[in-house]
Write a protein that binds this DNA or RNA. Structure first.
Lengths: 107, 107
DNA sequence: ATTTTGCGCAACCAAAAAGTTGCATATATA
DNA sequence: TATATATGCAACTTTTTGGTTGCGCAAAAT
C-alpha cells in the first residue's frame, strides 16, 4: 500500500479533516458531524492519515482524540523547497531586468 | 472530473515529471525515457497536469514541449501557510519556554 | 512519394480508493 | 444489570486511477 503525505492530502475531505484537527484534537464522531459522510468513512480517512503518520491518537475513556502531527506537514514544505528556489530566482531575475531598464532610461 | 493541484502531485511519477520539466521544457518522448512506463502513460500524466494547469504546451513542428507553470505550485504553498503559522507559533512557544528556564536557572 | 517519427485519443484492464452496511467490543450511564 | 454510545474492523460495491495496446494524423526524413 502506497501511503505517503502527498497521497494523504490528495483527497479534499482529508485536507478538511487535517485543517480541522490542526486547531484542536477531535473524536471521529465530532469530525464526522462536519461532513456529509458516515462516521465509518471518516474513520477510514483517519486510518489513512494514521498510516502515513500525519495524525496520532489519544485514548480518553471510550473516546479517541485525533491530533495532527504537524511536523509531518513539513515534508510537503521540504518538497516544495526546490520550486520555491526557482520562483525566487525568477523573481530576482525579473527584478534585475527591471533595474536594468531603469538604468537605461536614465542614460 | 475532480482535478486539482493536490491530486496532481499525489502520484510519485507525476511528482518526478514536475521536477524534471521544472528545469527545462521537454517532449513526452524525452520524459518517457526517464521512466519505465510507455510514452502513452506519460502522455496521460501530462494531460492530468495540463487539466489542472500545472503544465503548458509549446508546439514546435511535430514536437510538443511541456513546461511547468511554476506559479501554480504556489497554490500548495498557500495551503501550507496555515500550518506554517502553527509550527512557527509552536516554535516560538518552545523558545519562550527555553528562555524562561534559562532565567530561572540564573536566579 | 514513401517511410519514419512524435503525438494524442479511444478502448480496455487490473488494482486501488472511497464509500457503504453490518457487526463486535469496550466504556459510560440508567 | 441492562442499555446506550464510541469506536474499529470486515465484507462488499462503485468509481477512479494508472497502466496497457492499437489506432490515426501530421510533420520530418529518406
Amino acid at each position: 500500500m502506497r501511503r505517503d503525505v502527498f497521497q494523504a492530502i490528495a483527497d479534499p475531505t482529508r485536507r478538511a479533516i487535517i485543517a480541522l484537527i490542526a486547531l484542536q484534537a477531535m473524536t471521529p464522531n465530532a469530525i464526522a458531524e462536519h461532513f456529509d459522510i458516515t462516521r465509518q468513512a471518516v474513520s477510514k480517512h483517519l486510518r489513512i492519515l494514521s498510516e502515513c503518520e500525519l495524525v496520532k491518537q489519544e485514548q480518553q475513556g471510550r473516546e479517541i482524540y485525533y491530533t495532527l502531527e504537524i511536523e509531518k506537514m513539513k515534508q510537503i514544505d521540504k518538497w516544495l523547497e526546490q520550486f520555491r528556489k526557482i520562483w525566487e530566482t525568477r523573481f530576482s531575475q525579473l527584478d534585475n531586468l527591471l533595474s536594468t531598464i531603469k538604468k537605461q532610461r536614465k542614460q
